[in-house]
Design a protein around this nucleic acid. Structure first.
Lengths: 207, 207
DNA sequence: GTAATTTTAGACCAAATGTACTAAAAAAAT
DNA sequence: ATTTTTTTAGTACATTTGGTCTAAAATTAC
């Protein structure tokens, strides 16, 4: 049987994703899992504490994904695979994205962690792109810092596809993730070498 | 002397942008402009009515910009100019972007208008790109619907640069708009023809 | 100048929220 | 078996919120 503490986090995540943090009260969360609101407060003093706990869950899952991401010499396939998995995790905790301005406004701590994570993500992209260039899959830069600019583009995409999906898409989770993962991959296409483009166009799952 | 109705909209916009819609109450808005909250309610029955009025302001400014956008045969320069102006308007009403999921959740009417506007925007991009291809500034598609995919990319960017700026940037408004307008333009670069790229790289204001 | 209307403020209300306090019940430690 | 700690529910309170109702004040129309 699940402990109340887990139940609280589970239900909070569900409600935050569906109704938005501001529209969910401590009392409502407690009511939905049939415990008293004072019981909930015993476990988490404030709603912010719940958010911080959920954020930790997200970080744990993300770093686990990072750890298990193995070397792969097929650049596009590997990128697509990691993207799918990463997007899937993020989607589970999508309220962090759709409410990022609220959350960072109310919690300087989370904001700082968020900025840290972004830096790590950027350097991962940077490394992957550098490798792809060496492997002859991506072309060289055509102007100074072209790939830094590109990294900015994909960072913005990574932070915002979920918000777009919330407005434009009403299909099931899997379809949404697949759609936006493929769309993400396609941002790389015009930066590929001739050989890279050939390989890319052979991947049926992208079209 | 300004009418209260205008003052309400002005102050609401300011507070919504800075604190988020959910964190601003009818009473707070009224207090900040020294009127009674019942006076405010007389003008706008609910907070949602204020949002709808502000949304109308935004639409008006946007369509005005559209109307005055004149023909221009320098593709990149024209694109940059329009982008700057458009981004500037959107930034004034940035809470619509940062809170889009909340707002569309609570107002089906605004959601529908939003979807309409997106369609118009997409078709504008589509037309501009088609023209650029004809003018020999942008290259032809390298796979089917490549530019439809690209339009998806720039739509997502257009909807989300503001959220990014709220988290990552703490400079002044003008710098933020300039930064993200230039970043936007650079998404087009890899789709340009050789000639297009040459012209692009000559534009000092981009680097 | 008077009547009609629009605008404004103030008092009041019911519902919801975060929070604090107390005590009982359950679980763990000894 | 008992003591201690952890977990839980209940109650109560002050604050805030959206909203209604009434009446005065200001503005406009005639």
């Amino acid at each position: 049987m699940k402990k109340n503490k887990e139940l609280i986090l589970e239900k909070s995540l569900e409600l935050f994703n569906n109704q938005g943090v501001a529209n969910v009260s401590i009392r409502q969360i407690a009511a939905e899992i049939n415990i008293s609101h004072s019981n909930l407060i015993y476990h988490f003093k404030t709603k912010n504490d719940i958010i911080i706990a959920l954020h930790q869950q997200l970080l744990d899952k993300a770093s686990e994904l990072n750890r298990e991401t193995k070397e792969n010499n097929d650049f596009i396939k590997a990128l697509l695979d990691t993207t799918r998995k990463g997007f899937d995790i993020l989607y589970q905790y999508r309220f962090f994205i759709t409410e990022i301005t609220h959350i960072t406004r109310e919690s300087e701590a989370i904001k700082q962690i968020f900025l840290e994570v972004e830096k790590i993500r950027a350097s991962m992209y940077r490394e992957a792109i550098a490798n792809a260039v060496i492997q002859g899959v991506m072309r060289a830069e055509l102007y100074e810092k072209e790939y830094e600019t590109f990294i900015e583009h994909i960072k913005i995409y990574s932070d915002s596809w979920i918000s777009s999906s919330q407005i434009y898409d009403d299909t099931d989770t899997d379809s949404i993730i697949e759609k936006y993962a493929v769309l993400f991959i396609k941002m790389f296409f015009p930066y590929l070498t001739e050989k890279g483009k050939e390989d890319f166009l052979k991947l049926d799952e992208l079209f």
